[in-house]
Design a protein around this nucleic acid. Structure first.
Length: 951
RNA sequence: GGGCGGUUAGCUCAGCUGGUUAGAGCGCCUGCCUUACAAGCAGGAAGUCGGGGGUUCGAGUCCCUCACUGCCCACCA
């Protein structure tokens, strides 16, 4: 450790003294550790050498790589991010502590449209504009913006303690990533998989760019369906009536189509119509796409403004006439309507048609209308020249198309193996369904901020030169009169490449050998198609040509960008409403974190994150987990206090075994053997749960263990051993404290992935600033051992004691025994059970506040109304108090009903031969035991009822 | 138009491949400042698992159906 590092460790640990404040205050510790983790570069991962990797594997550990879904640079952390990051951090910390080489890679996305809009807004407020600045200046301006504000979301992430490797942080517009993006584009172009052409695309008139199908959100809306009469040329008063929801587009009609089988129109096919308002002559054509039963059965065809019409136009070689410009205003082709906004033009067109008597019926019509995902402007299908990836096209040399590769990666192969596994599994279906119906991907955007398409247009021969290095002349005719394409690439093109580009692709790097494929992707459903699907397509496509580290060819299973995908839920508000700015119900994670502490919020999210279920985030619950943090804090105070007291009387705790699992010998007291066994079981359960992304189960298991077992029972019992008085046995104190500290330290490690701040603070305090590592995050996770689960005599004895104590406490309550008063108890019990109880009588006396528990013959107990009847004993307090017979009768009645029901159902089952024959022996045995116990209880309860009635 | 979820205590949710008497947190009721913690401790009440049908020795869990509810996908003008 360098001197500087050592100093900072000490500084951080200095406050980690054992004199902890009475109440847990997250604000006092979290910033400090968040900063420390970053400053100490704790989570940086050096690329391992082959030898190091071999060593790792020899210890049956592995590389665990996880890529942070890059938030937009413009982003602010929201609850979804926090859930996402909490889950990733829990898994990464857990894997790291298990001994894996855990690399979590952070970065941000340049987010083309979002960022451009942000900066444009800024320019508007300054009274200028993107256009006024010009492209070059504007892009500079965006970079400047990014330098100032782009780190915000990652800073928030640092505050939340995400254990990422900051040294590897990337930005999708970084030089090296840009080079890779360009290489990918050029390769696809060379492979004939990128083409440029004029097609109908979704166009946002406000953003003034093409957007992909995915960026269009559909909304059901009740609109109108207008019928318009188109006069037939050469036939007086004969019309073809078409139906449309967008009458203004008629100005660009170049045909009317009918179904070839539609009898109504047989005579009209091939005739010519006069397009109203425009006067153009357009043909009536027959196309099977037309559905006779919709509208009038005749469709106006506007190839430049509708994707279906465009397809018809192609089939029938129709002209495509655009009547709108990029802002959705009518253009010169619209004649008298030129310059009007599309909706103004619609109104005018309808008025004019009406005036000419060409407007027919107007009907209410429900249809779904496409809006721009980003700005909610109604999207206009627009004919424009764009760049596309042919995702369904097989490469020239043969082989699978990009989409097919992406399907194979998820489908089970002949052996039932899947290269990529989804959790929850149902998303596989969703993904495959989408991939089965995928269209070519429009990757060009008419923006300035983004990766500019590396294509040059030649003014001479009009051909395109696509190149890795900026060309000086046309590759086809040699002309120097070339200009670069102005479009940039869809943001998802570059982010879809991240799993390969972050590791240095297109170079074949050591990083690529070691870290690719990544192990896991954790993300929300909302970007399954946008990003997850694109990464699978592009990742498989480009990595398949990269040989494995040993030079062998890469199989599909090793060319996937990640081996597993965990899709998490949506975080909703406490009323299950989707959080949205317009509803004003957005919960700011940072505000919540400031109020309750990061650990409490993390724990809340984890405890509710059961796969496949949305999370209704409730502050009430967070409050509960802050209480949990406080509980841990106070347990620490209690422990440290006692270690201190022990030190004062010359008892030193043996700290040599810290960092492992508590070593508890045969002769150790029951509570020590029991808690060690519980810890072992809990460790097994937590590890198993995390392995299946069952965060809620893992969280709840540690919670129950720490609060229920460790604090409520173990700690209370241990108090008995902590006698620092004159004649105290020092060995007992020492041994108890040692186990206590060991268990606590192990529990902290168990909790650490969920509550990294609190556990870090307390862990350093356990070692009084002399910790064996820089962070608890670098210690080993308690794994639990299968062999420790069996032969669990301690648990059985403990359960016996717990049940007795619970009975006694209940009796105290029923009899209204004053809280401070200790009273004797008597019970009728088996000799064996009595021996166990007497051997641990101090525990019972302490926890149940009794002076003694004396065995008595049955008759002594029999007459006592209100005694507790269990399977193992009849027990009662010796305390004069009026018994509330009414309450007692009520309780007995309830109990009777329950027992009768249980016994009856058990009898029914046990009397059933089919059950005895078919059910597994263990189930039958269990039921038999249950039944006989219940029968005893039932008998006892009935008797008690009689006794009660006799009084 | 297709497809996928959900419906369990007053509230928010667990309950994995069907197996003994369905759990947790919050809230509620009762009593306690028992010197780690009142952000606490102890005791307690509370559910015919959305309705109906079926399979099974056995169903909250599997199948069918209905109801309500949420989401995704889709080029009916």
């Amino acid at each position: 450790m360098s001197q500087q590092a050592k100093d900072s460790t000490e500084t951080a640990a200095q406050t980690a003294r054992r004199e902890l404040p009475k109440a847990y205050d997250p604000a006092a510790i979290e910033d400090r550790w968040a900063e420390y983790w970053v400053r100490e570069r704790l989570f940086e991962v050096k690329t391992p050498s082959p030898e190091e990797l071999e060593k790792l594997h020899a210890q049956s550990n592995d590389v665990f790589t996880i890529l942070l879904p890059p938030p937009n640079v413009t982003g602010r952390l929201h609850m979804g991010h926090m859930l996402n990051q909490t889950e990733m951090d829990i898994l990464t910390r857990w894997r790291r502590m298990r001994g894996d080489l855990a690399l979590w890679l952070p970065g941000t996305d340049h987010a083309g449209i979002a960022t451009q809009m942000m900066v444009e807004r800024q320019l508007t407020s300054e009274g200028t504009s993107r256009q006024a600045l010009g492209r070059e200046k504007f892009v500079e301006r965006v970079w400047e913006w990014r330098r100032h504000y782009g780190g915000a979301i990652l800073d928030q992430m640092k505050r939340l303690g995400a254990s990422v490797d900051w040294s590897r942080e990337y930005f999708t517009m970084d030089e090296n990533l840009s080079v890779a993006v360009r290489e990918a584009f050029v390769r696809l172009y060379e492979q004939g998989l990128i083409y440029r052409g004029a097609y109908i695309v979704n166009w946002c008139p406000r953003c003034q760019t093409a957007i992909s199908d995915l960026e269009v959100v559909h909304e059901e809306q009740t609109g109108k369906l207008w019928e318009i009469r188109y006069p037939v040329i050469g036939a007086e008063n004969e019309f073809v009536t078409v139906a449309t929801t967008r009458p203004e587009t008629m100005l660009g009609d170049t045909a009317v189509a009918v179904n070839p089988l539609d009898e109504r129109y047989q005579g009209l096919i091939g005739k010519t119509l006069r397009l109203p308002l425009v006067g153009r002559e357009i043909p009536v054509i027959a196309d099977e796409w037309v559905k006779s039963d919709f509208g009038t059965g005749a469709v106006k065809v506007t190839p430049a403004h509708d994707p279906n019409d465009f397809a018809i136009g192609q089939r029938h070689k129709l002209a495509a006439i655009s009547v709108m410009d990029e802002t959705a205003h009518m253009n010169a082709e619209a004649g008298a309507y030129a310059g009007l906004d599309r909706y103004v033009a619609r109104k005018k067109v309808l008025e004019d048609l009406e005036a000419q008597g060409l407007l027919g019926a107007v009907r209410e019509h429900v249809n779904s209308i496409g809006k721009c995902d980003r700005c909610k402007t109604v999207v206009e299908p627009r004919l424009s020249t764009q760049w596309f990836i042919a995702v369904n096209k097989a490469p020239e040399g043969g082989g699978d198309s990009m989409a097919e590769l992406a399907r194979k990666a998820v489908r089970a192969d002949a052996e039932g193996k899947k290269a990529i596994r989804f959790t929850p599994e149902m998303y596989e279906k969703v993904y495959l369904e989408w991939m089965n119906n995928i269209y070519d991907w429009c990757i060009s955007r008419q923006l300035w901020w983004g990766h500019r398409i590396p294509a040059w247009h030649c003014a001479g021969c009009r051909k395109i030169t696509v190149a890795r290095e900026d060309p000086t002349q046309c590759a086809h005719c040699g002309s120097a009169d070339i200009t670069q394409e102005t479009d940039v690439l869809d943001t998802w093109f570059s982010s879809g490449l991240l799993p390969v580009t972050v590791f240095g692709w297109p170079r074949h790097t050591r990083d690529l050998d070691v870290f690719y494929p990544t192990q896991l992707l954790v993300t929300g459903f909302d970007i399954l198609f946008f990003w997850v699907a694109r990464m699978i397509m592009l990742g498989c496509w480009f990595s398949k040509d990269v040989p494995m580290a040993d030079g062998s060819p890469r199989a599909l299973a090793d060319s996937v960008p990640f081996r597993e995908v965990y899709i998490h839920a949506l975080v909703r508000d406490a009323d299950r409403q989707k959080m949205s700015k317009t509803k004003g119900n957005v919960i700011d994670p940072i505000a919540i974190v400031e109020q309750y502490g990061t650990d409490a919020v993390r724990f809340t999210l984890a405890s509710m994150a059961s796969p496949g279920t949305d999370i209704a985030f409730s502050e009430a619950r967070t409050e509960g987990y802050r209480a949990f943090a406080n509980k841990i804090w106070n347990a620490a105070r209690f422990i440290f206090m006692n270690v201190e007291r022990a030190r004062e009387v010359g008892v030193a705790v043996d700290s040599s075994a810290l960092g492992g699992t508590p070593k508890v010998g045969e002769g150790a007291p029951i509570e020590a053997r029991w808690i060690a066994s519980r810890l072992n079981t809990v460790a097994l359960e937590v590890n198993a749960a995390l392995g299946e992304y069952r965060f809620h189960e893992a969280a709840n298991t540690v919670y129950q263990f720490f609060w229920g077992d460790f604090c409520d029972w173990y700690l209370e019992i241990v108090k008995l051993r902590l006698d620092f008085g004159e004649g105290a046995e020092k060995a007992v104190v020492r041994s108890a404290l040692t186990t206590l500290l060991e268990t606590f330290e192990a529990a902290l490690r168990l909790l650490s992935p969920f509550m990294p701040f609190l556990t870090e603070e307390l862990w350093h305090a356990v070692y009084e600033g002399e910790a064996p590592a820089k962070s608890i995050a670098l210690t080993r996770y308690p794994m639990g051992s299968e062999s420790g689960v069996h032969a669990d005599e301690a648990s059985e004895i403990m359960m016996l004691l717990q049940n007795l104590i619970i009975d006694l406490r209940a009796l105290r309550k029923e009899r209204n025994v004053p809280e401070r008063e200790r009273v004797p108890a008597i019970y009728f019990v088996s000799d064996k059970a009595n021996q166990l109880v007497q051997r641990n009588i101090d525990i019972v006396r302490h926890l149940a506040k009794v002076t003694e528990v004396k065995p008595q013959p049955h008759d002594v107990l029999a007459g006592r109304v209100g005694r507790r009847r269990g399977v193992a004993w009849d027990v009662d307090l010796v305390f004069e108090a009026a018994i509330d017979t009414a309450a007692e009768r009520e309780r007995l009645t309830r109990e009777l009903a329950k027992l009768e029901k249980a016994v009856a159902s058990a009898e029914r089952q046990l009397g059933n031969e089919a059950f005895l024959a078919k059910a597994p022996a263990a189930v039958v045995e269990g039921l038999k035991k249950q039944e006989s116990e219940n029968r005893v209880l039932l008998e006892k309860t009935r008797k008690a009822m009689e006794e009660l009635g006799a009084e």
